[in-house]
Amino acid sequence: MRQRWHPLARLLAALLLVGSALARAEPLEELALQAALPVDGMATGNLSGLARCGDGAFWAVSDREDDRLYRLQPAAQQWQAEAQAFVAPPPPPSALPWGLRVGKRLLAPLRGGALDFEGLSCDALGNRYLLSESEVAVLALPAAAPPHWLALPPQLLRQARARGLLLHFNALLEGLAVQSDGQRLWLAAERESRGLLAVQRSGESWRCAGNGCVLLAQGGRAQRPLDSPGSPPQALDFTALSWHAGRLYSLERLQHRICRRDPHSGAAQRCWSFAAAALAPERRYDTPYGMAEALWLDDGAAWIGLDNNGAANAAGERRPVILQLAAPAGGWNGRG
Score class of each variant (00 low, 15 high):
residue 7 P to N: 04
residue 12 L to V: 15
residue 18 V to W: 12
residue 18 V to M: 05
residue 21 A to T: 00
residue 22 L to E: 08
residue 27 P to E: 01
residue 34 Q to W: 03
residue 38 P to M: 06
residue 40 D to I: 08
residue 44 T to M: 02
residue 49 G to K: 12
residue 50 L to P: 05
residue 53 C to V: 12
residue 58 F to L: 15
residue 59 W to V: 03
residue 59 W to A: 07
residue 76 A to H: 13
residue 80 Q to L: 15
residue 83 A to R: 08
residue 84 Q to I: 14
residue 84 Q to N: 02
residue 85 A to M: 01
residue 88 A to C: 05
residue 89 P to Q: 10
residue 89 P to M: 07
residue 90 P to I: 04
residue 99 G to W: 14
residue 101 R to V: 04
residue 112 G to C: 06
residue 116 D to I: 06
residue 117 F to A: 05
residue 118 E to K: 13
residue 118 E to Y: 08
residue 120 L to F: 07
residue 123 D to Q: 08
residue 123 D to V: 02
residue 125 L to W: 04
residue 129 Y to R: 03
residue 132 S to L: 10
residue 137 A to D: 10
residue 147 P to C: 06
residue 148 H to F: 15
residue 159 Q to C: 06
residue 162 A to H: 12
residue 164 G to F: 12
residue 165 L to N: 11
residue 179 Q to D: 07
residue 181 D to V: 12
residue 182 G to M: 13
residue 190 E to T: 08
residue 203 G to N: 08
residue 209 A to R: 05
residue 212 G to S: 09
residue 219 G to T: 13
residue 224 R to F: 07
residue 231 S to D: 04
residue 233 P to Q: 07
residue 236 L to I: 09
residue 236 L to H: 09
residue 243 W to Q: 06
residue 245 A to N: 13
residue 256 H to Q: 14
residue 256 H to S: 15
residue 257 R to F: 12
residue 274 F to Q: 04
residue 274 F to L: 01
residue 276 A to S: 11
residue 279 L to T: 04
residue 281 P to F: 11
residue 287 T to P: 00
residue 287 T to C: 00
residue 289 Y to D: 13
residue 291 M to V: 03
residue 295 L to C: 07
residue 297 L to M: 06
residue 300 G to Y: 00
residue 301 A to R: 13
residue 302 A to F: 08
residue 303 W to Y: 11
residue 303 W to E: 00
residue 304 I to A: 02
residue 308 N to A: 05
residue 313 N to R: 02
residue 314 A to T: 03
residue 317 E to K: 01
residue 321 V to M: 10
residue 326 A to M: 01
residue 329 A to L: 09
residue 330 G to E: 09
residue 333 N to R: 05
residue 333 N to K: 00
residue 333 N to H: 07
residue 334 G to N: 01
residue 335 R to G: 00
